[in-house]
């Protein structure tokens, strides 16, 4: 898949959210999209997934089956989790039998089975996010795009995500996952996609030194200046928790 000179803005006269984006992703590759809040990560992912058109430039050779996992799944839908997933499987072209098998398999894998009969509007945030994850995997995706998939998930399911990603890539799929919390630092053989001021810098697997997360504690009054100093020194400040 090739991203060729992508430029994106949200309306005529609006500032560019993404500029001069060039990149490629090969089958079996994982790209970790990093950057500060508001840097343009979600916009980039939605353009790559085909949800939002680029203002200029093209995304070529996008796989036919794209799985999209949004940051916040929309649970306000008048279905049970099972009915929702069965309908999504039907949209993806699965037969009724194959749809039931796929739903049961992913529900079991994501510890969702007890909640399949629950109305979506009554699901906890974490369970709803699991439904959002399951719908993207019902058919093996050629491209799986995950926008902060860890939000709201329990620790058990969070641990599953690297394994799920590895399965998709082992089957020849590509994966792009955004992460501003450093959850992906343990994942091996990934390409780093850093979005900064609307521009993308890609560091191929092997070229990048392995990253790690250091948590530090400072006086609240010094939080802003410390973060600024760290950024000036070339470090990525992933989060400031007050």
């Amino acid at each position: 898949m090739h991203l060729r000179d992508l430029w994106v803005h949200y309306g005529r006269g609006a500032p560019w959210v993404l500029r001069e984006v060039h990149a490629e992703l090969q089958p079996g590759e994982v790209g970790i999209v990093a950057g500060r809040n508001g840097a343009g990560k979600s916009t980039l992912l939605s353009v790559i997934a085909g949800i939002r058109p680029a203002t200029r430039g093209t995304v070529d050779d996008r796989p036919t089956v794209v799985g999209w996992v949004p940051e916040r799944f929309a649970a306000a839908q008048p279905f049970t989790a099972r009915r929702y997933l069965l309908q999504m499987a039907a949209i993806r072209g699965l037969t009724a039998v194959a749809a039931r098998a796929a739903v049961d398999r992913w529900a079991q894998r994501l510890y969702l089975t007890p909640f399949l009969g629950t109305k979506m509007s009554q699901l906890s945030k974490g369970s709803a996010q699991k439904v959002g994850l399951a719908q993207a995997l019902l058919v093996p995706p050629g491209l799986l795009v995950l926008d902060e998939p860890w939000e709201g998930l329990d620790a058990q399911t969070r641990e599953e995500i690297p394994a799920l990603i590895a399965e998709v890539t082992a089957a020849g799929g590509m994966v792009l996952v955004s992460d501003h919390r450093g959850e992906t630092v343990k994942m091996p053989h990934t390409t780093q996609w850093l979005v900064h001021d609307g521009r993308l810098t890609v560091t191929a697997a092997g070229e990048a030194e392995r990253r790690c997360v250091i948590e530090i504690s400072v006086a609240q009054s010094q939080a802003e200046s410390t973060a600024a100093r760290l950024r000036a020194d070339g470090h990525d400040v992933l989060a400031v928790r007050l």
Partner: peptide, 12 residues
């Protein structure tokens, strides 16, 4: 249809 579900529908 919620906005996020519409986005999922586009990919589906």
């Amino acid at each position: 249809e919620p906005d996020v579900q519409r986005h999922i529908a586009i990919t589906a």
